[in-house]
Design a protein around this nucleic acid. Sequence first.
DNA 1: ATTTTGTTTTAGAATAATTCTTGATCTCAA
DNA 2: TTGAGATCAAGAATTATTCTAAAACAAAAT
Lengths: 147, 147
Amino acid sequence: MPTPISHETSHEAMTRSGIRLTPQRRHVYESLMATPDHPTALEVFMRAKKGMPSISLATVYNCLDALTEGGVIRQVNCERASSRYCPNLVPHGHFFCKECGAVFDIPLKPSLEASWEVPSGTLVSHAELNLRGTCGSCTQRFKTSKL
Amino acid sequence: MPTPISHETSHEAMTRSGIRLTPQRRHVYESLMATPDHPTALEVFMRAKKGMPSISLATVYNCLDALTEGGVIRQVNCERASSRYCPNLVPHGHFFCKECGAVFDIPLKPSLEASWEVPSGTLVSHAELNLRGTCGSCTQRFKTSKL
DNA sequence: ATTTTGTTTTAGAATAATTCTTGATCTCAA
DNA sequence: TTGAGATCAAGAATTATTCTAAAACAAAAT
């Protein structure tokens, strides 16, 4: 049978990562998986409350931290705005539209690591690429509004 | 005579950028230029107070914002830590040592922009590359401490 | 030179995101 | 089942940053 990408995988991911799988963590994770955008902790909280009304914002922060710590999700930061969270574990960058606030995953080519030079002896454990600009639909909107 | 890289240049940069050159802005800029590290607003404030005891933290924030806005300096962010400021305008990335907190400029090769693919119609106005890891001297220190 | 207009500075208050604290609850292993 | 340790919830606390309002200043217009 085909590999299910949903629960088993997340369950495995969490247990393998060493963090304990609790109902709250599973629910936060599923709330994050539910949509392909990059919600803030507050947005995750508002979604998570629908299926688990007793959950608190602090718990959502705890869960997101634990999941990030365990490598099950990624925290994404742009400038000083609220952190956003991303369940896509494949290495990728992020594009932030300064017009509409949308956040997209950006696939990276393997050539990326050849694009920088660190002093010898430096160990790079994490690379983060953030792009900012105007997304396709905002560019389009501006173009037509100027006719 | 050789081009002086200091005052005339910064003066020009500020006036050309459209922001008014005030004593506070000049002093904040010079405090930032004084050392090649990447100070936080609070660190700039503490340094700036030495030569201008009446300056306030809010003014340092205002000045750093104005200078950033005018393109005279860059704001550098890593994770959710305090913003840091960088007077190096040549495009470059940043390396953050998670052991000692040092921040280094990382030269970028021109191949960088070929390393990502944005959907057609997307306009990228700003690219930011942040690396995290262990710097050379921390790596060295760990190596010798394990003997 | 004086007034006007708009900008900047300052000090302190306010805000917003996040973290901390505490006691209650839960989970797992012995 | 009991005990140790982890997690949860609620709200307080913290921290970086921004805002507010009044005073000082600068440039332009009279």
